[in-house]
Amino acid sequence: MASSTTGEKKILTLKGGDNEEFILEESLVLQSELLKNMVKEERVSSIPLPSIKSKTLVKIIEYLKKHAELTPSNKEEFKNFEKEFVNVVLEELLDITVAVNYLKINGLLEFCCQAVADRIKDKSVEAVRKIFRIESDFTPEEESEFRKETPEAFEGDLDDTTN
């Protein structure tokens, strides 16, 4: 997709992980520090983002549009949008958070991190290990010591299905 200018507005193409293309106004992507630098310094018109699923990219572009329209009068509406935005299965939320971190969209990153934190705060240690794909490197003795000392840590929400 070649760079084109319609009136004052510059157009940019983002290419998702599965080669799906998204055409949007350049001004929208300036909210991302990463894309802003690419656009300003390298004057690119098409940016491949192979590490981001198209599904995730759709969500992020939706956010960028809403955020660009944010005014003092629709603040409430935006807040509701944000709430709905993170109301997805945990796996998708993690995908979005990783992508937002990569793209460096600051306000949204903080919001996503808080949303992830809210979702995992009552999880059991086992569930957290699975979600973050961490294997315990404690010895079986240490592990049983933990279970004795803080049984509640292992009794939390066992749901690790990332939903």
């Binding site: 240690v125 315990s136 933990f146 803080t150």
Partner: peptide, 8 residues
């Protein structure tokens, strides 16, 4: 406090 048990 609980998640200190996740890993070293």
């Amino acid at each position: 406090l609980q998640f200190t048990c996740v890993s070293k």
